[in-house]
Amino acid sequence: QVALSRTQVCGILREELFQGDAFHQSDTHIFIIMGASGDLAKKKIYPTIWWLFRDGLLPENTFIVGYARSRLTVADIRKQSEPFFKATPEEKLKLEDFFARNSYVAGQYDDAASYQRLNSHMNALHLGSQANRLFYLALPPTVYEAVTKNIHESCMSQIGWNRIIVEKPFGRDLQSSDRLSNHISSLFREDQIYRIDHYLGKEMVQNLMVLRFANRIFGPIWNRDNIACVILTFKEPFGTEGRGGYFDEFGIIRDVMQNHLLQMLCLVAMEKPASTNSDDVRDEKVKVLKCISEVQANNVVLGQYVGNPDGEGEATKGYLDDPTVPRGSTTATFAAVVLYVENERWDGVPFILRCGKALNERKAEVRLQFHDVAGDIFHQQCKRNELVIRVQPNEAVYTKMMTKKPGMFFNPEESELDLTYGNRYKNVKLPDAYERLILDVFCGSQMHFVRSDELREAWRIFTPLLHQIELEKPKPIPYIYGSRGPTEADELMKRVGFQYEGTYKWVNPHKL
């Protein structure tokens, strides 16, 4: 086992960053958080920038500027975001240094004079007029057009580079997404736009490419001749908990499936790229999406959770019991969808996408189930092999396979070949997804960000279904809070070829 401390991990990262040409360590950078008073800024962006600063992973002359409508001070920003920093008493001095680099400007999102004030403020910072500028839009999409237009007109660096990070949702359907994309691309070049999907920053999602293309053993079996089906799962054990009003506007397909799960599907299904260059990788992902037809209604199961009468606390409440959810809402909190990649490698292999709230566990994984062994000599005792990439929690890679049961006879039983990170790298604290992705933006690497043509294809696949749901308002199937979801989803999976045995229990190697 390799035991690495946080300091050692960050030392390795620093070495990698400083050796590259793309990370300008000594240049002045300004990180501007648009929507600095909001939840995302408070819980994710400010803490992430602090962790990067604490670990010495930001360029040395980096300033952080918050911008929002609320009249706040840096002290206010500190008060609301610091509880999420997880700072230790030993880091007190470092924390003071961090907040000394912070400033805040209040202004409207659609007022040109406010942006001119913001620009004057940035120019007044040390070497601010020639600094590289990175704008993070932690804002609702309704203000994107006004904000990007004003940034472009008043706040661009004339000497350094300018980059803009856009948070999902990128529209509600193909038409609104196209409108937003066309607007942003009329102001910024594609190499300046970073559409963030934080799932692409997760260690195991990034590991998929290495697993596939750096190991000879997987190449020959990664196709329709050997793989019976692919299941991509995202499960949350909690409901909307008072935030249903926002969720109800989008629903589970827009929230998770059309982005996170579809991105994971691309990494499983794509061909080997010409290189690890950002556009070479994204070219292959677009090719996969172009091979997927629009979702067919007979390959869809929609569910909505109801309270568990035997549960406790939140578990007793259904989705419609959330006071922020519109009365009688038919918005799905669970969806199972089957897609097919219609190309030579994957023809006929079902890709089953499942996601839901208020389920029995927290889990995100990719599961490849292989065909049955031909010419069975073990009297149907063999179960199908599976390769599982567990994204969260407890990152893991393992192969479910058959071995001989101890004893006199040739009785096979299920076991696993474990390729888990935790076994080799004991207690290594890896940077989280937002840390990686923000560092990628500083480096100018777009590999783990969504390109406009990729986004367009993703919406093309799901828009007809979303429009049909909005028009017909089908009643989702009720499922109990804390269950596996509607049984109809299991029946759909069985119908397209997935075999669920229920006889195997994964042993978490992190707890051995």
Rank of each mutant, 00 (worst) to 15 (best):
D376W: 08
Y425F: 15
F442V: 15
R362D: 00
A315C: 13
R367W: 00
W346M: 02
E284T: 07
N259H: 01
R345P: 05
L417W: 00
D279G: 09
R460P: 00
G502V: 07
E344P: 11
E491P: 01
V428Y: 15
K287L: 07
L353A: 05
Y504C: 05
I469V: 14
G348L: 00
E491K: 13
M264C: 07
A396T: 11
V306G: 11
R484I: 00
F409M: 14
F378N: 05
V428K: 12
Q381A: 09
R354C: 03
D255K: 03
G375I: 06
V286G: 09
R282G: 00
L437F: 03
L471C: 09
L339C: 15
V373A: 10
M493C: 15
S483I: 00
D432E: 12
Q468S: 14
T420I: 08
K287T: 08
N411L: 06
A336W: 00
A269N: 02
V338Y: 07
P309G: 11
R354A: 01
Q468H: 13
E271L: 05
C443G: 13
G375L: 12
D321N: 11
G356M: 02
G502T: 10
E414H: 09
D376N: 14
F410Q: 09
I469A: 11
E454I: 08
D418F: 02
E435M: 09
D322K: 00
D453T: 07
V268E: 02
A297W: 15
Q296C: 14
L492M: 15
I480L: 15
G348V: 01
R345D: 09
D372M: 06
E395W: 03
E386K: 01
K405E: 14
G318L: 00
L339I: 10
G318A: 11
A269D: 05
K272Y: 05
E386V: 03
F442R: 04
L353F: 08
E365M: 08
R460H: 08
L320F: 10
A374D: 15
G422R: 15
F378H: 05
V507Q: 12
V301P: 06
A297F: 15
E488H: 09
Y421W: 09
S278Q: 11
F410C: 11
V349Y: 02
Q392L: 01
D347E: 14
A489H: 08
Q499K: 15
Q392P: 01
E491L: 11
V337Y: 05
K287P: 01
G313A: 14
F351V: 05
T330L: 10
Q380E: 15
G328W: 10
G313E: 09
A489D: 03
L267A: 07
I352S: 00
Q468V: 14
D283H: 04
L465A: 10
G482T: 04
L466H: 02
V496M: 09
F409D: 12
F351Q: 00
L466R: 00
G318F: 00
G502A: 12
N298L: 11
D280Q: 12
D440K: 07
V286I: 05
N277M: 10
T331Y: 00
P431I: 07
K429H: 14
F409T: 15
E314W: 11
I292Q: 02
